[in-house]
């Protein structure tokens, strides 16, 4: 939790808006953890087909979710890709997706290790 990949305040905010129960947060986190790799896979598939529209949607969804779970850097990477997709000029999609995949993995691991204590204190 100390690598700064996950923005704790975002998690606190999320827990606050959904009513403050860590169990509810865990449920959402499970959804995220199981869904995020699929979204990265969707990025790869759409990249291979150069389907910018599908890539944009996948990037958008991952961005939105990453932002909810405080994966700030991941959200930024996704946002950049999303904008490139919208403009129709994706530079080195492979590279971008690899970067997102790595960040997604790392932030996912960091997110899994978040415990109730991490986000309910101060």
């Amino acid at each position: 939790m100390s690598d700064g990949r996950i923005d704790k305040s975002a998690l606190k905010r999320l827990i606050a808006v959904i009513g403050g129960a860590f169990e509810d947060f865990e449920e959402l986190r499970d959804d995220y953890v199981s869904g995020a790799p699929d979204l990265v896979e969707a990025l790869r598939t759409s990249g291979a087909e150069a389907d910018w529209s599908a890539m944009r949607i996948a990037a958008h969804t991952l961005k939105s979710n990453a932002r909810d779970f405080g994966a700030t850097r991941l959200a930024q990477l996704c946002e950049r890709l999303e904008h490139q997709c919208r403009d129709g000029s994706v530079d080195a999609p492979q590279q971008a997706i690899d970067e997102i995949a790595a960040e997604e993995r790392a932030s996912r691991e960091a997110l899994i290790s978040v415990s109730a204590n991490d986000v309910t204190g101060d």
Binding site: V17, I18, G19, E27, L28, D31, G35, T61, S64, N65
Partner: peptide, 16 residues
């Protein structure tokens, strides 16, 4: 919302 997590978060906020 097409995004499952957004749906859940939104529903939780509203239910609260």
């Amino acid at each position: 919302d097409d995004n499952l997590i957004n749906r859940k978060v939104g529903a939780k906020i509203l239910k609260r």
